[in-house]
Design a protein around this nucleic acid. Sequence first.
DNA 1: AACATGGTCAACCGCTAGTTA
DNA 2: ATAACTAGCGGTTGACCATGT
Length: 253
Amino acid sequence: MGRAPCCEKMGMKRGPWTPEEDQILINYIHLYGHSNWRALPKHAGLLRCGKSCRLRWINYLRPDIKRGNFTPQEEETIINLHESLGNRWSAIAAKLPGRTDNEIKNVWHTHLKKRVNKKQNNGGDTKDINGINETSQTTTHDEDKESMIVETTSPQQFSSSITTFDISNNHIMSYEDISALVDESFWSDFVSVDNSNHHKEKKLEEDWEVLLDRNIKRNSYNNSELYDDDMEFWFELFTSNRRIEEFSDIPEC
DNA sequence: AACATGGTCAACCGCTAGTTA
DNA sequence: ATAACTAGCGGTTGACCATGT
């Protein structure tokens, strides 16, 4: 078991991903999959290391990612699972479909750990998992509501640090527009099963309809339901885009 | 208005486990 | 058996943003 050689730093780009890089990665994975992360960036033409590509895909670009607010139920689940599993974030994430270990880790460190510590200081006996369940259900309701309000109004909640694209602009969707949408709330809000924010849902639905009308030929799509085959859908979407031509000569891995 | 502080989250780093030759 | 290699995991960092002073 040797240690993996470090990524080739020379020429490798680091830092936030651009919409263009996201698009390249998405297109490549839809076409060829990700059987070999290390070779992927080279074949895809990305100046990133395989690790970075993998992380970006898993934590952000995967179509089944559910982004946005954690529901109180999800938070309770995390607290309970953390009580029994500890910092095994991937194991916890496995119990929360659509949530990533990174996201869960972040929400634990920023919200839930404090909440649990606070309960412990208030005399809660956290040794007993059932005990913390009961305590949480009976005493954290207001806190949950408060945290949800804060999260909902946070401008960072549905945007990456890369772009500041306003999807309310009702203009013609160019490739760059689609990239910006994909880069921000697009996947999550669109794929999300928990659509509790009706206003946002409505707006996204309208934006999505514009996107469909102007960029693809698919006519009957209902935003309230998940598309049956995500991969096929995105493949169609991206192959309908002019940029896909750039990948037509990529050799198979 | 300007600065300080704290919160949030995407991304990176270093390590381990698993696989292959 | 073992060395080389990759994927995946958890800890940490740093940039960005909001809020407080």
